[in-house]
Design a protein around this nucleic acid. Sequence first.
DNA 1: CAGCATCCACATAGATACTG
DNA 2: CAGTATCTATGTGGATGCTG
Lengths: 132, 132
Amino acid sequence: MKNKSEAVCYCPLEGIIDVISKKWALLIINAIGNYGSLRFNRLIEELHGISPKTLADTLKQLQNEGLLKRESFAEIPPRVEYSLTEDGRGLREAVVPILKWAATRQGSKRKRCSVAYREMPAHRIRNGSHSS
Amino acid sequence: MKNKSEAVCYCPLEGIIDVISKKWALLIINAIGNYGSLRFNRLIEELHGISPKTLADTLKQLQNEGLLKRESFAEIPPRVEYSLTEDGRGLREAVVPILKWAATRQGSKRKRCSVAYREMPAHRIRNGSHSS
DNA sequence: CAGCATCCACATAGATACTG
DNA sequence: CAGTATCTATGTGGATGCTG
């Protein structure tokens, strides 16, 4: 086990804060991660409460960040599948420690599952793959 | 080694997103963590660029979240020291994986240290304690 | 020194309606 | 189905000036 004074540059934060600070970003990452791939309206349901605009915006940003992959199929009706890139999967797992920390912190500050979140499957993250 | 399908509730995110999404919160947590404790104006310098209002706001929120401890000394001039609580230290460490992920991701998306951040000592996080 | 009060600017999210 | 276009509401950060 390596020890204490290992330094990690905090700078990447500047880039990543833009991602994780978005209200829905991590939820989207996780939802897609859980299912392997999801479609637009499926995400709307999963995230329940998000507006198409917000979803579209976030999806686009996530693609720009290289976290999501978008595949559109020329069918009628149109079909578009979103899935995680390697980076996306990496982020998804990197967040777990924070979740664990948040879930176990002693203070009374810890949040319970809100009704809103409880209703959605996507409110849980799994460490491993989605085993699809 | 435990495996794949360990589930982590994503709900705490709702509470924690409010913290980590704040532009300066993690930087403050880290800065204080690095030094053990810091004073208001010292933080202003460390974070360089933050306004007193924003710092005060964030500091207050962090206290409410139970991440920071505030100690004021009845001296002239007044002195106030901020330090991390157990929870604060926990968060600080829980963020490391994200930092590491961000720092090593393959895409060209990865951010370099901005000049702004490069100038501040607080832009680095250490895994262990600050060994004060 | 360590803030608070005020006002302002901008980014993000939601509602709603419409389109390829 | 998978978005886009608008408009609005809100929140978060910044600037400046003042106070215990």
